[in-house]
Amino acid sequence: MSKTLPLFVLCLLLGACASERVVLLPSTDGSPGKVIVRDAAGERVLDQPYAATARRLGINRPTVTEAAQVEVRYGETLRALPPRPTSYTVYFETGTDTMTPASAQAFVGVKREIAERPAVEVMVIGHTDRVGSPAENDPLSRQRAELVRDQLVAEGVPAEKLEVAGRGEREPLVPTADDVDEPRNRRVEISIR
């Protein structure tokens, strides 16, 4: 009994010293983020980059954290994480599966980013504007997405890493009435994760 008591006391002491830490990291695009941390006393909102809380004995306490401290403490772990997902949009000429010249040029960066990711998954979703009927736009949106997929496969992206979908005119970026020619709706969204 006396041998197990010190071990039990040690476990209690270690448990009492253990803590959890939450640090809100800045987003890569500069947009604000927010994390809500709850405990028995209520909730604490972290809404500034490097805002932090440490949980000890079931209570969250605010802590001061800076970028340099995060790098020292978590840098190796953060560098081991996969890259954050990114999205690109390429646009098309009216009624066709031909990319606009600016989108064709920007597509080079999309291919480069996909090639640099070690374990990539890509979702390619085609869209149309509301010119024409849904019966025409559904296949056209899919055709646009398949064109992008085929170009990525030609660049060496494994086909099994690509998912393709066509949404037709159902998810406009800019809502319009029927038969309105809106260039921002004639697009393919490429989500890379």
Score class of each variant (00 low, 15 high):
1 M>S: 10
2 S>C: 07
5 L>S: 10
6 P>E: 12
8 F>Q: 13
8 F>S: 13
8 F>I: 13
8 F>W: 12
9 V>A: 15
13 L>Y: 15
14 L>N: 08
15 G>Q: 11
17 C>L: 10
18 A>P: 08
18 A>Y: 12
19 S>N: 09
20 E>S: 15
24 L>S: 05
28 T>V: 14
30 G>M: 05
35 V>C: 07
35 V>N: 07
39 D>L: 07
44 R>H: 13
45 V>A: 08
48 Q>T: 10
52 A>L: 06
52 A>E: 12
53 T>N: 06
55 R>V: 07
56 R>A: 11
61 R>V: 09
61 R>Y: 08
61 R>C: 05
62 P>S: 09
63 T>I: 09
64 V>T: 14
65 T>E: 14
67 A>L: 03
68 A>T: 13
69 Q>R: 10
72 V>Y: 14
73 R>G: 00
74 Y>N: 06
78 L>H: 04
83 P>W: 09
84 R>H: 14
88 Y>H: 13
88 Y>I: 03
88 Y>M: 04
89 T>A: 13
90 V>T: 11
90 V>C: 07
91 Y>I: 04
94 T>G: 04
97 D>A: 03
99 M>T: 05
104 A>Q: 14
104 A>I: 06
109 G>P: 07
111 K>H: 04
111 K>P: 02
118 P>V: 14
118 P>W: 12
120 V>G: 06
123 M>R: 12
123 M>L: 12
130 R>L: 02
131 V>F: 01
132 G>Y: 00
133 S>N: 00
137 N>G: 02
140 L>M: 01
145 A>S: 00
146 E>V: 00
147 L>N: 01
151 Q>N: 08
151 Q>E: 09
154 A>F: 13
156 G>K: 00
156 G>W: 00
160 E>S: 09
161 K>H: 05
161 K>F: 01
165 A>E: 07
172 P>N: 04
177 A>H: 08
177 A>G: 11
177 A>Q: 11
178 D>S: 05
179 D>T: 07
182 E>Y: 06
185 N>F: 02
187 R>D: 01
191 S>N: 11
192 I>V: 15
193 R>W: 11
